[in-house]
Design a protein around this nucleic acid. Structure first.
Lengths: 214, 214
DNA sequence: TAGTCAGTGAACGCACCTGTTCAACGAGCG
DNA sequence: CGCTCGTTGAACAGGTGCGTTCACTGACTA
């Protein structure tokens, strides 16, 4: 099959895919502005510049729409990768670097994350508790990030408190509380969390905390 | 005026007040089960065993309904009083006692607080950002509790981190994260928060931490 | 005892969303 | 060139909630 032929065969599919993408983007934008709870199919269609029937044509079930929306958001600004964090050997340095990256992500996507964290339970209820895979992955991310951070600390019998510290450190709600209600900036939150994690435990290479500042 | 007379005069008002209370209780129960966002006037009327028109008669504006609902909740189980906390001189002991009391309150009212913290932004949006006084007080409570806890610690230049620790300590979302997602029990959360608050700072009477355990 | 008024039951028009259907258009396809 | 099929525009029937109105009942009041 000649490649030019295949390209021609796709011209129609491309338009179709572009329409589908416009719908997903409209959903994403509405989730970021009014939030998932108040996002209706009608509003999505209107914002996408498309008939309602077209939305139902591409997404017969609401679940598919949420799936596409999360995929779009992840493609726009991918959240931090726990596997990359594990490459840093020193736990304190890993924590500093990881949190700096994560809080940047939080800040860039604050409106969306605020609305989503507010509405996610309502939406899951509406979907019959069968979350689309992409959303399930997204919601499971904090636990993965915590597990990536929890390695290699010198903690005799304090594993519970260390894990608690790190779960708070990667939690969007915690970040938002400290930034919006307590008035801290990202660097202060990082510093605070490093201190909390090190509280009662000691990093294997404690000097790394200072070295990582630069 | 004879007291017996006044009592008779009230018989009708009593019935009316009782109806009003039934409506407030129905609202409270719906807020605790399905949450404020999904609580409709129709559902309130049905649960209160009352006509919709009666609800509108007692609460012409939705704001009044929320006000009555919060008042009812506070009368059922009053949240901790910051003024009482200030009576404890030693900051670490105060923190232990206060958090034990607060987390008991969180646990007794977990369903309600979960739904309210989830829906409060949506509701405030619907009310035109004019929160009823009782709700405003309720939402302002965490800051008051933090301020009651922040006194008397020996903290050279770490006031920011201390305040951050204590705001997290009195935050319902933090408690819920640590209990439901990290699996801690209330005593462990208290212990964790005491440690976090003391991290980088020292309580004036540090021995008080041990003494307060008993 | 005659009147007041909280509450009833039912209906009103309005607004919005849902999911589906269908004839018709038109760009892209074989 | 004729056909396919994604998309349109419009309409459908159904659902839920809103806020208001009104005649009426009956317990309490003066």
């Amino acid at each position: 099959m000649p490649p030019g032929r295949k390209l021609k065969l796709k011209q129609r599919a491309e338009r179709m895919e572009e329409t589908r993408c416009r719908i997903a983007r409209a959903t994403y934008e509405l989730h970021a502005t009014v939030g998932p709870a108040l996002t209706t199919i009608s509003a999505v269609a209107e914002r996408a510049g498309v008939q309602r029937a077209t939305v139902y044509h591409h997404f017969p079930e609401e679940r598919g729409l949420h799936q596409a929306c999360v995929e779009y958001a992840v493609s726009l600004d991918p959240p931090p990768d726990p596997a990359a964090w594990r490459m840093v050997a020193d736990p304190a340095s890993r924590l500093r670097l990881g949190l700096a990256e994560l809080y940047g992500y939080f800040r860039r996507n604050e409106a969306l994350l605020t609305n989503v964290s507010r509405d996610v339970l309502l939406v899951l209820e509406r979907l019959g508790d069968e979350a689309p895979p992409a959303l399930a992955d997204f919601l499971g991310l904090p636990a993965l990030l915590r597990d990536a951070l929890v390695q290699d600390w010198d903690n005799p019998g304090e594993a519970v408190f260390l894990a608690a510290s790190l779960l708070l450190a990667v939690d969007f709600g915690t970040w938002r509380t400290l930034v919006r209600r307590q008035g801290l900036d990202d660097a202060q939150v990082v510093e605070f969390m490093v201190r909390v994690a090190g509280c009662g435990t000691t990093a294997r290479g404690r000097g790394g905390q200072q070295a990582a500042v630069n």
